[in-house]
Nucleic acid binder design. Structure first.
Lengths: 210, 210
DNA sequence: GCAAAAATTAACCAAACGGTTAAACCTTAT
DNA sequence: ATAAGGTTTAACCGTTTGGTTAATTTTTGC
């Protein structure tokens, strides 16, 4: 048996970590079904049996990787959403950090969405983190600003979904957008870099009263 | 050999059609990798060999189904986007029809996006329709309205991506949104029904000059 | 230094998968 | 009625896949 501590993380060059990294790559690109254990082993540069030595089964390995991916996505959102700060600044920061996280890990949203759709039970039971972002404070802030007449009336839940959609979807649907807009990869990249500013401007304009 | 006409569609209760429908269900839920020929056969209530009798291989069956799914999605968008009408009306109609199509076929976007990511070559070579929507007219209209001072300045490509994102993403990420917003399925359904009005209002507010 | 433990490998296994085949069944035109 | 051709099935085949085993190599504790 491998002596694996649950608290300490293994060294970056350890076999266990190499497996995890390779699995991370393959799973996030191909999902649970598309990923093959042999490919993960090859990419980690080790024998296939070692996968089962360190992580008992494909399912277990998948759960580990998926949980790590989820956590990265969730913690980034939560931090901004729950912190105390003026609404406009919060919106600005939320869009900035959200697009930042996604653009550095473009596979995350598609991975989450695909896997939820294919295996909802497993996802909600064993992969989804317990400490989800609580948008309650954000909703309260929006309603307070509306009451004070500082922003146009809007249902806060829809506002949040508007923002998340505009931040996430262009990265999820990047290839489709590129075709629709007739942009080559290079042009598409600059286009996506502009989004932080464009989304922020758009949201604030839509909230401006009158 | 089955005498299959390429022009006439087979009767709804024909074996060929039953296979197609079953394949449509399974492929759209599980994608190419996740779908199993046996499951398609079972759901169609026929022997597995019949799949190969009517559609030569899994790949061919997949291509048929995928093309049908794509066409439905694409043609709906194109119609509104290319038709001549005032910009505000076009935006209203675009959002309405877009959300309409998606909400009646919630699996379409995720299917397209997933499959593009896994097999870009196959997708662009054999599945994507040739006659894609041309957003050129829409872009011209937006720029004309900006020049006339009737809407706030905005890059038309970003506007289009904003709109599409807000229309599509809530359906794609529905389970995730439900968790984040703490909504049960019933509540989520009413929430999604509100989106047509909410998105329209939001976009028009963001475009209002001043 | 050496034995015990951990790490790694090659070879193998059973199940699942896409696909094939040959025979049986059904329809229909004469 | 019957032969021909289209339709459907059960059984089978080769390959791939996740997983196991037994043996080998490397590391570690004393």
């Amino acid at each position: 048996m491998a002596k694996r501590s649950t608290t300490t993380e293994p060294a970056i060059d350890s076999t266990e970590q190499k497996i995890f990294d390779a699995a991370h790559e393959v799973f996030s690109q191909k999902g649970m079904d598309g990923a093959k254990m042999q490919e993960i082993a090859d990419r980690a540069g080790i024998n296939k049996a070692l996968l089962h030595y360190y992580y008992r089964s494909k399912e277990k390995l998948y759960e580990m990787v998926a949980r790590a991916i989820l956590n990265k996505a969730v913690s980034a959102v939560r931090e901004v959403l729950e912190k105390e700060m003026p609404l406009e600044e919060k919106i600005r920061r939320f869009i900035e950090t959200y697009i930042g996280v996604i653009s550095r890990n473009t596979f995350i949203p598609l991975f989450i969405i695909s896997e939820i759709n294919k295996h909802p039970e497993r996802f909600f039971a064993t992969i989804l983190p317990q400490d989800l972002p609580k948008p309650h404070l954000f909703f309260q802030q929006v309603e307070a600003e509306i009451a004070a007449g500082r922003i146009r009336p809007i249902k806060p839940q829809h506002l949040l979904v508007h923002i998340i959609s505009m931040c996430v979807f262009p990265f999820v649907g990047k290839p489709m957008m590129a075709v629709l807009l007739g942009m080559r990869p290079a042009k598409m990249q600059t286009f996506l870099k502009e989004r932080t500013a464009e989304v922020t401007q758009f949201v604030l304009a839509a909230l401006r009263p009158q």
